[in-house]
C-alpha cells in the first residue's frame, strides 16, 4: 500500500511542482499585493506597510463593487443559460439524420476556432452604432437603431450575446455526443410506450443526459467566470461601468489608468478566486450527492 502511494505520487511530482511554481507563487504574490498599502515608491523600492484587509474594505465599499458583482453574476448566468439552451436545442436537431447534417454540424464549430480578440472585434464592429450591420438590419425592418455598446442599458446585453455565440459550439459538441451515447433502444422503448417526443425528451433523454449536462455547465462556468478579453475589447467595461465584471474591474484597477493600484486590483482578483473556490466546492458536493444516491 505504501509502495503504491509512493509510485502514485512519483507520477504526480512534475504536476505538483508545476502547480506550485506556476500557480502557487503567482497567487502568493497577489495575496501579498492585496494586503499591503502600495504607493509607486513602495512598490518599486519595497517597504510597503501591511494593512491587513483594508484594501478589501475599500473594494467592498466602492460602489463599483456592487455593479461589478451583479454584472458578473448576470453575465455568467445568462451566458450559461443561453449557451446551454441553444446548444442543447441544436444538439437535438442535429441528432436526427438528414442530408448535410454532419457538414453543417462541423461548420458550427468555426466560431470556436477564432481567437477571442478576433471574435470580440468582429462583434464590436457589427454592433457599431453608426456603421454596424446589426443596426442596418434593424433599419431594414423599420426599427430604430440601438446603441449596443454605448448605451448603459445595452452594453451588458451585447457582451452576453457575443459570449453566448462563442460558447455555443462547445455546448453543441459535448451535448451532441452525449445524445449519441444514449442507446437507441431507450428511445424505441419510449416510443412503443406511446410517449410524445416532448415527453420522451423530458422524461427519458434529459435525465439520461444529466451527467454530460453537469460537466458542460461546469466547464462553461469555469470559462465564463474568467472572461475578460471579450468585454475589454468590446466595451472596456463601460460606458460608465455598465458592463464591468470583477475580472475587468481588477484589470482596470491594475492596468487601466496611468497610475496602477495593484493593492485593490489584487484584492478584487482574490475575491474572484474565492468565488471560484466556492463554485468548486458546490460542484464537488453535488458530485458526492450523486454518487451517494
Amino acid at each position: 500500500m505504501f509502495r503504491k502511494n509512493l509510485v502514485g505520487w512519483a507520477f504526480l511530482v512534475p504536476l505538483v511542482a508545476y502547480l506550485l511554481l506556476c500557480y502557487g507563487y503567482p497567487l502568493l504574490t497577489t495575496v501579498d499585493l492585496s494586503i499591503r498599502d502600495y504607493t509607486v515608491r513602495t512598490f518599486v523600492h519595497g517597504g510597503a506597510q501591511v494593512i491587513g484587509l483594508a484594501n478589501y474594505g475599500d473594494v467592498f465599499a466602492d460602489p463599483v463593487f456592487r455593479t461589478a458583482l451583479l454584472n458578473t453574476v448576470v453575465f455568467t448566468v445568462a451566458s450559461l443559460v443561453f449557451q446551454y439552451g441553444i446548444g442543447l436545442a441544436l444538439a437535438l436537431f442535429f441528432s436526427r439524420r438528414f442530408r448535410l447534417s454532419a457538414t453543417l454540424r462541423a461548420l458550427f464549430l468555426v466560431p470556436w476556432l477564432l481567437p477571442l480578440i478576433v471574435s470580440a472585434s468582429t462583434w464590436a464592429w457589427m454592433f457599431n452604432s453608426e456603421a454596424g450591420v446589426v443596426n442596418a438590419a434593424l433599419a431594414w425592418f423599420g426599427l430604430d437603431g440601438v446603441n449596443w455598446l454605448t448605451s448603459p442599458d445595452w452594453s451588458l446585453v451585447s457582451v452576453i450575446v457575443a459570449n453566448t455565440w462563442i460558447g455555443i459550439p462547445f455546448n453543441l459538441v459535448v451535448l451532441y455526443s452525449g445524445l449519441r451515447n444514449i442507446p437507441a433502444e431507450v428511445h424505441e422503448a419510449a416510443a412503443l410506450d406511446g410517449a410524445s417526443s416532448w415527453q420522451a425528451f423530458r422524461h427519458v433523454t434529459f435525465p439520461m443526459l444529466r451527467p454530460v449536462s453537469a460537466v458542460t455547465l461546469l466547464l462553461g462556468l469555469v470559462y465564463t467566470l474568467k472572461v475578460f478579453d471579450i468585454i475589454w475589447i468590446m466595451t472596456r467595461g463601460g460606458p460608465g461601468g455598465s458592463s464591468t465584471t470583477l475580472a475587468t474591474w481588477s484589470y482596470e484597477l491594475g492596468f487601466g489608468s496611468m497610475l496602477p493600484r495593484f493593492g485593490p486590483s489584487s484584492a478584487v482578483g482574490n475575491v474572484l478566486i474565492l468565488m471560484a473556490v466556492v463554485a468548486g466546492l458546490v460542484y464537488v458536493r453535488s458530485q458526492r450527492h450523486r454518487e451517494a444516491s
Binding site: Y23, L27, L225, K226, G269, G280
Partner: peptide
Amino acid sequence: KLRPRGRGPLTFVLLVAQMIPGIIMALGL
C-alpha cells in the same frame, strides 16, 4: 489508476485553478 492517498485535494485544486482568470495570473507571472 494508481489512486494514491491525498489525491482528492489535488483534484479540487485543479478544478479551482481552471477558474482563475489569466489576467490575475499574468501579474504574478
